[in-house]
């Protein structure tokens, strides 16, 4: 693990007497610092799949804009601009696919990725029920899941915390600001 800060920087200058921290090095160091706590880099297969997905997206946009009508330079039609952009997108994505082996800035899915999925599920539940039973119950549920299971807080903190947060939101949004968010009480 490279540490951000004085030491790694010192090492570099020691090996490189002109003592010049080039911009590229510095940017690299900043990114290094940010990546220390992140999951490891993904392999070439993931990179290729990502590039392929972008190609598919671009191709879909290409077909869509073609069907809108491209027109000519003299009389541009509705599809001309999205057509041009999707052509560029597809070309760039193909380059990405070709260089997939050399890219190293994608992350692997880790155990932590399940937490992200769980977090998304709480939001989907929220939006699915909010119109029918108001925001209070799904908000409390969301808060509790995030505190207890995603944040590893204690049971007591999680229960009191989620109740408190919902109460505070009720006071702010419903009682004080009269925002017309669906609410049960």
């Amino acid at each position: 693990m490279t540490e951000p800060g004085s030491r790694s920087n010192g090492d570099k200058t020691a090996a490189d007497p002109p003592a010049e921290l080039s911009l590229a090095d510095a940017v690299h160091e900043v990114e290094q610092a940010e990546h220390d706590l992140r999951p490891p880099a993904a392999g070439p297969v993931t990179n290729a799949v990502v590039a392929a997905v972008v190609i598919l997206l671009g191709a879909a946009a290409l077909l869509g804009s073609w069907s809108l009508g491209v027109g000519s330079a003299r009389t541009p039609d509705a599809g001309m601009w999205p057509f041009l952009v999707s052509v560029v997108l597809v070309v760039l994505a193909v380059v990405l696919l070709v260089t997939a082996k050399r890219t190293s800035d994608a992350e692997r899915f880790s155990r932590g990725s399940w937490l992200v999925l769980a977090g998304l599920v709480t939001m989907v539940v929220f939006v699915a029920v909010v119109e029918h039973i108001g925001f209070e119950i799904p908000a409390a549920l969301l808060c509790f899941v995030w505190l207890r299971f995603l944040g590893h807080e204690g049971w007591r903190t999680s229960i009191i915390g989620s109740a408190g947060v919902v109460a505070a939101f009720y006071v702010i949004f419903v009682a004080a600001l009269s925002v017309p968010i669906p609410h049960l009480f």
Binding site: I133, A168, Y170, V171, A175, A176, H183, L184
Partner: peptide, 14 residues
Amino acid sequence: LGLALSTTACGGNL
């Protein structure tokens, strides 16, 4: 505070 205010605020708006 929420309880105190909820008596003045309207009920559910569903």
